[in-house]
């Protein structure tokens, strides 16, 4: 199955990576090459094999549903590219 330009554009949109048309073809070729290579997995028989999720070395733990962190607003906001008082700022999204 070969990857077309329209699908590449859709994937870029889903990933929110703005690619110029000139870059799209280059990306399409690179991805198509990798996809062609990983197609070798189609020869593996996985009938009845369960998918491996994580590395399954530890069972997931539960903990008490209590607050363990917080009260660090200023520390968190210290990393914001743009902020106003105790808020992050972004362009207006509702017209």
């Amino acid at each position: 199955m070969s990857l077309d330009l329209a699908t590449t554009r859709r994937i870029a949109k889903l990933a929110r990576i703005g690619l110029e048309d000139a870059e799209l073809e280059n990306v399409r070729q690179k991805l198509d090459g990798i996809l062609g290579w990983v197609d070798q997995l189609s020869e593996v028989d996985v009938e009845g094999v369960p998918p491996m999720v994580g590395t399954e070395t530890e069972a997931l733990r539960q903990r008490e549903d209590v607050v363990t962190d917080g009260n660090c607003r200023d520390a968190i906001l210290s990393c914001a590219p743009e902020k106003s008082g105790p808020f992050y700022t972004v362009p207006k999204v509702v017209e």
Binding site: I11, P51, M52
Partner: peptide, 26 residues
């Protein structure tokens, strides 16, 4: 990121991602 987005996207998830997770079990 684009490769990962592709293999997780609707229509390709089973063929690529789920398949890879099963091979990982093997």
């Amino acid at each position: 990121i684009l490769m990962g987005t592709y293999v997780l996207s609707a229509g390709y998830y089973d063929a690529y991602y789920l398949k890879a997770q099963k091979v990982r079990t093997l």
